[in-house]
């Protein structure tokens, strides 16, 4: 397995131990998740115990140890969104995608995640797909939002037919 790109990241951060979180962030951006072999590789290169890296990868919420879908759907569950009905939106997302929070659809199109607050409370309740923010989401709008991305998705497509 080639790790040239991973080594580039390590090089960019100067193999510094204190840059570990930044390194893992860059690796996640490169690979979309954190594969065991890559983490083992940086453990060897940086001489940091794998258990420490694994602890970081499981402690912080933005890291994923599982491959994630092409589109990341985030439902904000911040206070403002909560009292404006974010939970119902999440339930509807789960129902529509046939997955639970934290999971990825079988066709690897969507990953459903929750986030504590994205700082756009004035638009509550908010959902984010990749980099696009959707404001004042209601369970009725969920399907429409997802269908913007579902054209390539087998899962939703098959149900439409």
């Amino acid at each position: 397995m080639a790790f040239e790109k991973v080594d580039e990241i390590l090089e960019k951060h100067g193999y510094r131990h204190d840059a570990l979180i930044g390194i893992i962030q860059d690796i996640q951006r490169l690979e979309n998740y954190l594969p065991l072999e890559t983490l083992r590789h940086i453990s060897h290169r940086l001489e940091i115990p794998l258990s420490r890296i694994y602890y970081i990868a499981t402690f912080y919420k933005s890291f994923s140890l599982e491959p994630r879908g092409r589109h990341i759907v985030k439902v904000c569950l911040g206070t403002a969104c909560h009292i404006c009905g974010a939970t119902q939106n999440l339930e509807q997302m789960e129902r529509t995608l046939h997955i639970c929070e934290g999971e990825t659809t079988k066709d690897m199109m969507f990953s459903l995640e929750t986030v504590n607050c994205v700082g756009t409370c004035a638009l509550a309740p908010v959902a984010i797909v990749d980099d696009t923010y959707y404001d004042a989401v209601t369970p009725e709008k969920v399907e429409k939002i997802l269908s913007n991305y579902a054209t390539e998705s087998e899962g939703i497509e098959s149900e439409k037919n």
Binding site: R16, L20, I21, I24, I56, F63
Partner: peptide
Amino acid sequence: NRGAGAFVCGESTALMNSLEGKV
């Protein structure tokens, strides 16, 4: 330094641990 999604990192000592590349 970019955080990685942990509310507790708003606490000063936790934030400093995070800056040092720890949990």
